[in-house]
Computed example of a mutant assay.
Amino acid sequence: MKIRLVNNGLFTPIDDIHALQKPPIEGFYWIDADVDDLSVLQPLFTLHELAVEDCLSEEEQRPKIEIHDGHYFIVINSIRFDDEEIFLRALNIFLGRHYIITVTKQKINELRSLKPILLEEQVDRPDRFLYHLVDIVVDNYFQVGDRIEARIESLEEDILVHTKKSHLNEIIGLRSEILWLKKVLGPQKEVIATLNKKDLKLIDDQLQKYFSDIYENAVKIAETFETYRDLMANLREAYQSSLANRANEIMRVFTALTTIFMPLTFITGIYGMNFDYIPGLHTAGGSYILIGIMLFLAGGMLYYFRKKDWL
């Protein structure tokens, strides 16, 4: 657990945890904690037991905001896209009048990238800290969206150039993750809408208006991933169409080969019959003449098929 006094974006480490019960003269306290630290923080800040239970739960928590006496409990999801797989990590936030507590089970990159912004904006209130944190989390969805779009375009190009069976697994996997992520975006959008519209005493009225920009971005993200879902459906159709075209091409080749060998089989069938007299059977060099005729027929049919664009 790391405890810092934040004043005008400057950090001052705090060692005495009991000093957190009283508001500082200037600034606010930021406690960056793990779930194990909640046993100490809960009685210190009178955190609601249900909110603490949600933090400790192994089940995936939906984004939400809960209003409790003296503090708010907010859950939002940070997003990552590593090794072609989407990861969501819950960011639990307790917002009080003179403190903000961030509780995570894994490392959240947004918390590290937030520090220079706090210094640049000279943040001295916990609600402004919350605003910049939510803003960074939502902006990262755009970056992940760009990478997903690039992956869809690359996959589409690969399918059109050379279709593989592995492409279907990639399409199904990516589409499933997009659908799963789309379900999460709805509740998260509602949380931001609440921060934007609802009368919240712990958030300054002037600052609350800025959450409207974040809400607009959240709406754009939801619409973007809706588009990605449609693109994945189109990509699957393209895959199936490509397979069908490839099968048709193979059938065209086999049909052409079968057609070419039909007259050759007819000729060899006649000369394989048990008759005493067959034209050219006892002629010197007759076999070479017959093979030449067969090659001429095969070559002529192949030329005709290509001229008709059947091959």
Rank of each mutant, 00 (worst) to 15 (best):
S39E: 12
H68N: 08
L47I: 07
D34Q: 10
E66P: 04
P24Y: 03
E85Y: 10
V52K: 02
R89T: 07
A33P: 13
D36C: 11
K22P: 01
Q21G: 02
K64Y: 02
E49N: 13
F87M: 13
A90N: 15
R89N: 12
D32C: 07
L41T: 04
E66C: 05
H18N: 13
S57T: 03
A19Q: 10
Y99N: 08
L56N: 12
V52L: 01
A51M: 02
S39N: 15
D69L: 10
E85Q: 10
F28S: 00
E84A: 12
D37L: 06
I31D: 03
G96P: 07
A19S: 10
E49Q: 12
V103K: 00
G70T: 06
E26S: 15
H48Q: 13
E60P: 08
N92G: 07
F28G: 02
Y72T: 07
Y29K: 01
L95A: 05
H18S: 14
I25F: 14
I93V: 15
L47P: 08
V52Q: 00
L38I: 04
P23T: 10
Q61V: 11
L88G: 06
H18A: 12
I76H: 05
V75H: 02
K105I: 03
P63C: 04
V40I: 09
G27L: 06
I25E: 15
P63S: 06
L38E: 00
E84V: 08
F87G: 12
K64T: 02
D83F: 08
P24L: 03
E26R: 12
E59I: 05
K105G: 05
L91A: 00
Q61E: 15
E85T: 11
K64A: 00
N77K: 14
P24H: 02
P63E: 03
Q42E: 03
H68D: 08
D34K: 09
L95S: 11
L88R: 04
T104F: 05
A19C: 09
